[in-house]
């Protein structure tokens, strides 16, 4: 039964991610006084793109072709490991560091594809993405480290199980600081405001969109899908690291179908709430000047650092 988690999670992410994206857009549209295209619009867009002719820019290599597949693959792999619906049996295959590594692999594949097109925009987007990634990764690692210190393990299952057993852990200064640091990092990693503007048509300001400008048709559909899945996976991770309510854990033995359904509903609810909060927050935000983005991410890094320090000083010796 537990093997189901490893199947159910990527399936749920793959199907649900466009809806999460649609939800953020719809919430934003309504808050701005627009009607909005509906929650299902990203799915309709994907269907439209998937049905289009394949066009490949001249001079591009296998790097360009492989990037969308790699991006989708790494994101789905992360979805297998991360405890979203329940604690995955494949948890031993990868810890938080592995998740970070998987997501970064996807990012690097995309930046290489951006460079592979040989256009100014691809290069520009890649350069900006790498700058941001170089600042994001240390913050993630710091926050992860702070979370793993109390449980003496970087295993996601261990962290999540410990928090489920003792929800009071979330209220420690270390956990709060780590949560904020991770929250900022998720914004940067998924290309949301104030770091990147997912809705812009201004090619000179783009980060993520600049790298994928040369894609069209089915590969573009894959990229858009992967971007939506990354957002969903990261929101799910954020939610379950700090509020693993409803998660089908192995504490009570093998989870039943009912427990899995509860877990699915719980993670869907949590991700939806986070998506709504994200969209609502974005309405009040504008895009930072590119040179101010490092300041924001440095702030996130400092929070992660403080979280680690706090974990050391405020750790309860459990032996």
């Amino acid at each position: 039964m537990i093997a189901l988690v490893a199947l159910l999670q990527p399936l749920a992410v793959a199907l649900g991610a466009p809806l999460v994206l649609g939800l953020t857009r719809q919430v934003r549209a309504r808050l701005e006084g627009r009607v909005g295209a509906g929650v299902g619009q990203p799915w309709r867009d994907l269907r439209k793109l998937a049905g289009k002719q394949r066009v490949r820019p001249t001079g591009t290599t296998v790097v360009f072709l492989a990037a969308p597949v790699l991006l989708v693959g790494t994101t789905l792999a992360a979805a297998v490991i991360i405890p979203l619906v329940g604690v995955s049996p494949l948890d031993r295959a990868g810890d938080l560091f592995a998740v970070v590594g998987l997501l970064l692999t996807g990012t690097v594949a995309l930046t290489l594809a951006g460079l592979d097109t040989g256009t100014a925009f691809g290069g520009m987007g890649a350069s900006r993405e790498v700058t941001i990634a170089a600042l994001v990764e240390p913050s993630i690692l710091m926050a992860v480290y702070a979370l793993s210190l109390p449980v003496h393990s970087t295993s996601l299952a261990a962290i999540v199980t410990a928090v489920s057993a003792d929800p009071g852990r979330v209220a420690t200064p270390a956990a709060v600081l780590a949560a904020v640091a991770l929250g900022v990092v998720v914004l940067a990693e998924t290309g949301r405001l104030p770091v990147d503007n997912p809705a812009t048509h201004l090619e000179l300001t783009m980060v993520h969109e600049a790298m994928v400008l040369e894609y069209a048709g089915p590969p573009l559909a894959l990229l858009e899908w992967a971007a939506a899945m990354r957002l969903t996976v990261l929101l799910g991770l954020l939610a379950n690291l700090f509020l693993p309510v409803g998660l089908a854990t192995a504490v009570t033995g093998a989870p039943s179908v009912a427990a899995l359904l509860v877990g699915l509903a719980a993670v869907a609810a949590k991700v939806s709430v986070l998506a709504v909060v994200l969209a609502a927050g974005e309405v009040a935000l504008a895009k930072l000047r590119l040179f101010r983005v490092p300041e924001l991410l440095a702030g996130s890094f400092v929070l992660g650092m403080l979280a680690v320090t706090a974990s050391y000083f405020l750790i309860t010796p459990t032996g």
Partner: peptide
């Protein structure tokens, strides 16, 4: 101008 810095809500109302 607001839209170009990602402040879309101002543009939505300006368009109105």
């Amino acid at each position: 101008l607001a839209n170009d810095v990602g402040f879309g809500i101002a543009n939505a109302h300006a368009q109105r």
